[in-house]
Each structure stands twice: as structure tokens, then as C-alpha cells.
Simulated assay, not measured.
Amino acid sequence: MFFSGLFQQFPVKVLTVALLIILIVYFIRKSIKLFFDKTSFLDEKREETLMHFSNQVTKVLGLALFFIYLLSHFFKLGKLITGSVVLASALALIFQHIIRDYIMGLTYLLERQIHHGDYVILNGNRQGKIEEISMRYLKIRQYDGYLYTVSYSNITELQNGNRGRRRVNESLVLNYRQNPDDAFKVMEEVARICNEKYGQYLLKDENGVPEESFQFKQITELNVDFRGHQYSLSALVKENDFVEASKKVRYELAMAAYKNDLMMAESFNTN
């Protein structure tokens, strides 16, 4: 009788339901993990991505069920369902961008455009390794160590480098007064040096021939931030060597600029 009366108390019932939901979520996650451990029809990265995403989904569903149970004690279930439909319609209008995030997130996942651990470039200016794939956003660890979070609806361009190849693309922004002919000679020399010193990083075909060597791409952009012109060098390298190859190319560019007294672009901001 004591335990029967105890379980009728509202705080105890709420705690019991919360623990039950936690256990259900735990067993669902363990079952999914066990399923992937026992099967091999998906690659490891795909399994890791689905596991990561399913953890996010079960957490959200568990919280939703708990709050529905909690509200059912204060409102009649019929009225609660009717009110929930009306409320959901209103919230759908208010939180359109959030709903769009969820839909786009599912699209990226189902179309296999991204996987946990992939190296990606977002919107042309953010790049790093995917650390978290949630239902609404991506988190990528940038090369400078910062963790960048972006909602799916704000992704206008996504480049995925985890397909066995990456493109190193490094540049110098030189002053308007720099003679382009002199800059061209220096950049072409840097490309030659990189091919000699760092050829092991290049992506090669089955015959051992580089698919794209280090090449000077000439002037790739004019009037960069009203400071000067951009001279670029690029190559296709192996995914695992991308970071190291980029560092080496940046070093060679900096050394060439120093040795040849190239006029680097300067900011006109005097504040």
C-alpha cells in the first residue's frame, strides 16, 4: 500500500516516466550500435554518421515525449492534442527557418553529401573537419582550432574533400604597384620548387602520373578588399596530406615573397 500510494504522487510519477524514457532511449541507441557492429553493408564513415544523427534524434524525441506527458497532467488529452495542432501550425509559421534547417539536414544526410569526420569547405570561406552533425546544424573544427557552428539553412555552398582528393589553393595578395611580369616569374618558380620538393603529396593515377601538379593559376582575383591583386597556386593532393601540403606551399610563397622583395598588399585602414 505504501509503494502504491507513493507511485501515485505526481513528483514520483514524473521521475519514473523520465527514468523510463532515458532507459528506452539508451536501449534504442545500444540496439542501433549493435546492429551496425553486426553488419557490414555500410562503410564505417556512413555508420558513424548515422549513429551520430540517431543519437540526436532519440534525444529530441525523448524530450518531446516527456514534455507531452508532463502537459497531459495539466490539460485534458483531447484538448491538448487539438491545442497542439493549432500551436504547431502557429509555431511552424514563426519558426520557418528552424523547420527548414531540419529538412535540409535530413536531405544532406539521406543524399550522403556529408559524413562525420569529413573535411569540408562551407560557403567558400570556412573549412575544417566535421565534429558534430545535429538535426539543425553542423559543427566543424577549423584548422585554427576554433569550432564553427552553422545551421543548414545558412549553407549556400558545400565542398566535401573526403573523396580521396583535395585541392591545395594558396595565394599571395600583392600591391597594385607590383609589376605583374615579375610576380608571374616568381610564382612560376614557386610552382616548380613545390613540384620538386613536395611531389610525394600529389594525387597520382594508376600509372604514377600526377593528376594535377602544382601550377601557377595567374591572377585569380582583382581588387581584393581594395588592397591589391591575388596570385594563386594550386594542385590536387591526397586527402591525408592536404594540411601538410598547404603548410609547405604557404612557406614557399612567403619565402619567395621575402627573397624577391614582392610588394605585399597593405590595408588602407589607419584606425
Rank of each mutant, 00 (worst) to 15 (best):
L158M: 15
L158F: 11
L158R: 08
Q159R: 13
Q159K: 13
Q159Y: 11
Q159A: 07
N160P: 10
N160L: 12
G161N: 14
G161D: 14
G161Q: 12
G161K: 10
N162R: 09
R163T: 13
R163S: 08
G164T: 00
G164C: 08
R165N: 09
R165H: 11
R166V: 11
R166Q: 15
R167K: 14
R167Y: 07
R167C: 10
R167N: 13
N169K: 08
N169S: 10
E170V: 04
E170A: 03
E170K: 10
S171V: 07
L172Y: 08
L172G: 04
L172H: 03
V173W: 02
L174N: 05
L174T: 04
N175M: 05
N175G: 08
Y176E: 09
Y176H: 12
R177Q: 15
R177F: 11
Q178S: 03
N179M: 07
N179W: 05
N179F: 01
D181N: 13
D181K: 13
D182T: 07
D182F: 12
F184G: 05
K185P: 01
K185A: 15
K185E: 15
K185N: 12
V186M: 04
V186T: 09
M187F: 10
M187S: 07
E188V: 03
E189C: 02
V190W: 05
A191I: 00
R192C: 02
R192L: 01
R192A: 10
I193K: 03
I193E: 06
N195W: 09
N195R: 05
E196K: 02
K197C: 02
K197M: 04
Y198T: 04
Y198Q: 05
G199F: 02
Q200I: 14
Q200C: 09
Q200D: 15
Q200L: 13
Y201C: 00
Y201S: 07
Y201V: 07
L202P: 07
L202G: 02
L202I: 07
L203I: 05
L203A: 06
K204S: 04
K204R: 13
D205F: 04
E206T: 07
N207C: 06
G208K: 06
V209H: 11
P210K: 06
E211N: 02
E212L: 11
E212S: 09
E212N: 05
S213E: 11
F214Y: 13
F214R: 00
F214T: 03
Q215R: 12
Q215F: 00
F216D: 02
F216N: 01
F216M: 03
K217H: 07
Q218S: 14
I219M: 08
I219E: 09
T220R: 03
T220A: 03
E221M: 14
L222Y: 09
L222R: 12
L222I: 06
L222Q: 08
N223F: 11
N223H: 09
N223V: 04
D225P: 01
D225S: 13
D225R: 15
D225K: 15
R227C: 12
G228M: 06
H229C: 07
H229K: 11
Q230M: 14
Q230G: 02
Y231G: 01
Y231E: 07
Y231W: 14
S232V: 10
